[in-house]
Design a protein around this nucleic acid. Structure first.
Lengths: 174, 174
DNA sequence: TCCGATTTAATCGGATGCGATATATATGGA
DNA sequence: TCCATATATATCGCATCCGATTAAATCGGA
């Protein structure tokens, strides 16, 4: 199963030559329109999620990635930066500033692991744990336009897509 | 149909009390794990897409949003910043620097509309149009793990989700 | 033991996103 | 006409992301 991240390719000789007006309003000459790309759907849906969450997160005084880090730490306290990064799909270059900010806000502690001074272990403070409790009230409730089973399938398929993209990218990089 | 962006809420008295080891390894106390959030699935899938595209875009010398702008302009030349922003789900604060960069690279022109000097119209140069042709070769081919009909449904459902999130956010803002 | 290779975070520079604000232009009612 | 208001971009500051590099600690073979 191959991903082309857009409409079918091949048999593309109907583009160009807009003298014979085609059925569908093909703007200019392109046949791959922005709306046809799955990557753009995901990109714009991510923007939409960020904006939908913004109001609730502002009340908590957190940004979206900061909140994700809190949730990930609630699941498992005392993770190293790398472990947390695996869960969040980020690396230390992105994660370290976020964690320093959260530490400065008093929500977590960062301390070198005595057994291996290279690693930094992250643990939530009491304030950090309370933060997550408060965040649970901030439920995003919005009309999805999807039936429950569609919603569940969407979740599964997005995860499948993500994991296969990562696998493919890693393979080509190696 | 309401979106909770996570697992079921309600009947939550099985958390806490990890003395009786539960079937599934519930880490600490949280019941809403990161992997259960649709917003996080979308967020991480977006990161994965960006990384998957990175190599091909580097060869074009473009970033991901820059390439999106080129595609959107190919569809319809001479758009204003606002019109382009509607297609890309961005506003001038984000779009202007991207367009200035693309102009500096010689891929488009930005000129005030004589009929309304407030508006700036964006038009691709020849180099900009060639760029998109080259980009078409940069097809992302990766194993999705999804059947074709699942893939198509995923695309549709992500778009539905996005549009309903935007609608709901706009309503609450108003 | 010793030293080069590896691992883990952190740092740095460039490019988004975005809220808030600024600036220039257009519009419309007194 | 005049001016308050609205509109369209642009600017600014902050917070991600990310590739490349650095710094410190660990590991491992000679």
């Amino acid at each position: 199963m191959k991903l082309n991240d857009g409409p079918r390719t091949g048999s593309r000789d109907d583009s160009r030559d807009n003298s014979k007006a085609s059925q569908k309003p093909r703007p200019l000459a392109g046949e791959r329109r922005l709306g046809d790309f799955l990557c753009f759907a995901i990109y714009s849906a991510n923007l939409a999620f960020g904006r939908a969450y913004k109001k609730g997160l502002d009340e908590l005084g957190l940004t979206y990635p900061q909140w994700i880090a809190i949730v990930a730490l609630w699941e498992q306290d005392g993770q190293t930066v790398s472990e947390l990064g695996e869960k969040m799909f980020l690396e230390s270059n992105t994660l370290t500033p976020i964690l320093k900010k959260l530490e400065q806000m008093g929500y977590l502690r960062r301390q070198r692991d005595p057994a291996d001074e290279r690693q930094v272990r992250i643990s939530l403070t009491e304030a950090g744990r309370r933060l997550r409790e408060k965040g649970m009230h901030m439920k995003l409730v919005a009309s999805t336009g999807l039936k429950p089973d569609e919603f569940a399938r969407l979740q599964e398929n997005v995860v499948t897509l993500r994991d296969n993209l990562i696998k493919a990218t890693a393979e080509k990089a190696g």
